[in-house]
Design a binder for these strands. Structure first.
Length: 424
RNA sequence: GGAGGAGUACCCAAGUCCGGCUGAAGGGAGCGGUCUUGAAAACCGCCAGGGGGUUUACGCCCCGCGGGGGUUCGAAUCCCUCCUCCUCCGCCA
C-alpha cells in the first residue's frame, strides 16, 4: 500500500512510475476526489463532535444544578443525527479509498530496469559451469520415475494432477535438502529458525499483498476465512503485524520452512510434468525486517544467502534482475535466481528475492522506533526463497544424472543422506 | 464441542452493579532532581501511547478503556456481536 499523503503530493510522478509496470491504472484517477471528499467530511464531523462534547458538559452542569436542559438536548439530538449521516458517508468514502489503495502496486525502485516482460529482465551474474553429457540428458521426471523415487501417477489417483509422492531415497533427498538449507541459514547466516502455521487468516494475506487482488491463486478453507499458505512469507512477515519494534532489534532475520499451496490459476498447460509447478511444494524462506536505509544492502545479502545454497550444491545458476514489467505486485525490486535445467537447456526460477520497502509494512502495520521516544516508522520487509526444495530436487536429478540412469549425490548433501554417494 | 471467568495505558491494578466533576485512582518500572565520596534508601517532580484533521509554526481539535456495531444530549460504565486468554469437562495426535 502506498502512503496516502505521499500519493496526494506526488500524484503525477507516482503515476508515471507505476505506468512502467504496464498495469491497468484506470482506477487511480478516482483518488483525488475520494481523498478530498474524505478530508471535507472529517473536518465537518469533527467540528460537530467538538460542539457536542462542549454542550454535553453544559448539560451535565445544568442537570446537576437542577436546571432545564431540554433545549440543548433537542439541539444536540439534531447534531447527533447529522454526525451519524456524515460518519456513514465518511465510512463509505474511506472504504473506497482503502480498496483503491490496496489495489495499487508498489513503486519500482530507481535501479530496476524498465521493461515490458520477462524478455527485458537483465542478467546480473552467472555462476557454475553447465554440465556437458555424452548422452542425452533426461528430464527429472523420467530419471525419478525410473529410479522409483517419485510417483506422479499414483498422486494423480490419490489427489489429482500437480501432486506427487516422494518415495524412499527421493523422500530422503527432499528431507536432506530441507535440513541442509535450514542449517546453513540458521547456523552460518544468522537467521532465527521458525516453523509457522500453514494456514493464515484474511488479514495476514492482505498484509503481505496476496489479497485482495489474487484470491484465485490461493487455496481457501471451506467454512473458514483461512487460507493455506502460498509461502512462509505470509505467516512470518505477519508475525509482527500491528506492532512497534525497537530500532535495536532490527534487522530481524527469520528462516522458515513451510509447505506451500498454490492453485496455479492461469497456468494450465505449463510445466504439466515434473516438480516444477505443483499445487503443493516445500520451501525454505528467508525473511528480514530492516531499517529503510539498510534494506537495499539487505536485499543483496539475502540474495547471496540463497545463492550460497546453489554454490554449495554446485548447481549452475544465474541471477536475473526483474524489469518493471515483471516485478510482481508487491516488490520494489526483485532478483530471481534461476537454476540450470539440462533437459530443457534453460535456466528456471528456483528463488525469488524481493525488497518490498514499506509496501507490506504499511499494509500490515509493522513499525519501529529509532529511539525510545521517537516517532514510529515503517520497517522495510524483504524475503527470498532459500530455496524451493522441489525445484532443487529436480535440478540435482538433472545436473547430476549419469549415463546409466543413476544420480550422484552432491558432496555437501552426503552427510544429510547417511553418507550415500549415488542414488541408484 | 459444553460450563464458567477475564481483557483498562510499558507492567500490575481501581473504576463497570447505580452513565456525566474519570481520558482514567493507586502501585511498580522509567526519566529528571534533592541528599550522598559514590551507590542504595528516603523524599520531590515528570510520565498514554497511537491514529487522524488543521496550521508556516507554536498550538487547537477529533478518535481512543480487546475489535466492531447499537442505545443516549452524553458510554470504560447499558445492549448486541466478534476475537483473545485462563479454569473445569468432553474429544484427541
Amino acid at each position: 500500500m502506498l502512503d496516502m499523503k505521499f500519493l496526494r503530493q506526488n500524484f503525477d510522478e507516482v503515476k508515471a512510475k507505476l505506468q512502467k509496470r504496464g498495469e491497468d491504472l484506470s482506477d487511480l484517477d478516482a483518488f483525488g476526489e475520494l481523498d478530498s471528499r474524505r478530508r471535507e467530511l472529517i473536518q465537518e464531523t469533527e467540528e460537530l463532535k467538538a460542539r457536542r462534547n462542549d454542550v454535553s458538559k453544559e448539560i451535565s452542569q445544568l442537570k446537576k444544578n437542577k436546571e432545564d436542559a431540554d433545549d440543548k438536548i433537542t439541539e444536540m439530538r439534531e447534531v447527533g443525527d447529522r454526525i451519524k449521516t456524515l460518519d456513514t458517508e465518511l465510512k463509505e468514502v474511506e472504504e473506497k479509498l482503502e480498496t483503491l489503495l490496496l489495489s495499487i502496486p508498489n513503486i519500482p525502485h530507481e535501479s530496476v530496469p524498465v521493461g515490458e516482460d520477462e524478455d527485458d529482465n537483465i542478467e546480473a551474474r552467472r555462476s557454475g559451469e553447465t554440465p556437458v553429457f555424452d548422452f542425452e540428458a533426461k528430464p527429472h521426471w523420467d530419471i525419478a520415475t525410473d529410479l522409483g523415487i517419485l510417483d506422479f501417477e499414483r498422486a494423480g489417483k490419490v489427489t489429482g494432477s500437480r501432486f506427487v509422492f516422494y518415495k524412499g531415497v527421493g523422500a530422503r533427498l527432499e528431507r536432506a535438502l530441507l535440513n541442509f538449507m535450514m542449517d546453513l541459514h540458521a547456523d552460518d547466516h544468522g537467521y532465527q529458525e521458525m516453523l509457522p502455521p500453514q494456514m493464515v487468516n484474511r488479514t495476514s494475506m492482505t498484509g503481505t499483498g496476496q489479497l485482495p487482488k489474487f484470491e484465485e491463486d490461493a487455496f481457501k478453507i471451506e467454512d473458514w476465512d483461512y487460507f493455506l499458505v502460498p509461502t512462509a512469507e505470509v505467516p512470518v512477515t505477519n508475525y509482527y503485524r500491528e506492532e512497534i519494534l525497537s530500532g535495536e532489534d532490527l534487522p530481524q532475520k527469520f528462516v522458515a520452512f513451510s509447505t506451500n499451496f498454490r492453485s496455479e490459476a492461469g497456468s494450465a498447460g505449463r510445466d504439466t510434468r515434473g516438480l516444477i509447478r505443483q499445487h503443493q511444494f516445500n520451501k525454505v524462506e528467508l525473511v528480514q525486517l530492516a531499517k529503510p536505509e539498510e534494506s537495499y544492502d539487505v536485499l543483496e545479502e539475502l540474495t547471496g544467502h540463497a545463492e550460497k545454497v546453489l554454490q554449495l550444491l554446485k548447481l549452475p545458476y544465474r541471477v536475473m534482475s526483474m524489469c518493471t514489467g515483471d516485478l510482481g505486485f508487491t516488490a520494489a525490486k526483485k532478483y530471481d535466481i534461476e537454476v540450470w535445467i539440462p533437459s530443457q537447456e534453460t535456466y528456471r526460477e528456483i528463488s525469488s528475492c524481493s525488497n518490498f520497502e514499506d509496501f507490506q509494512a504499511r499494509r500490515a502495520g509493522i513499525r519501529f522506533r529509532r529511539e525510545e521516544k521517537g516517532r514510529p516508522e515503517f520497517v522495510h520487509t524483504l524475503n527470498g526463497s532459500g530455496l524451493a526444495i522441489g525445484r532443487t530436487v529436480a535440478a540435482i536429478l538433472e545436473n547430476y544424472q549419469q549415463a546409466d540412469g543413476t544420480v550422484v549425490v552432491p558432496e555437501a548433501l552426503r552427510p544429510y543422506m547417511g553418507g550415500k554417494e549415488v542414488i541408484q
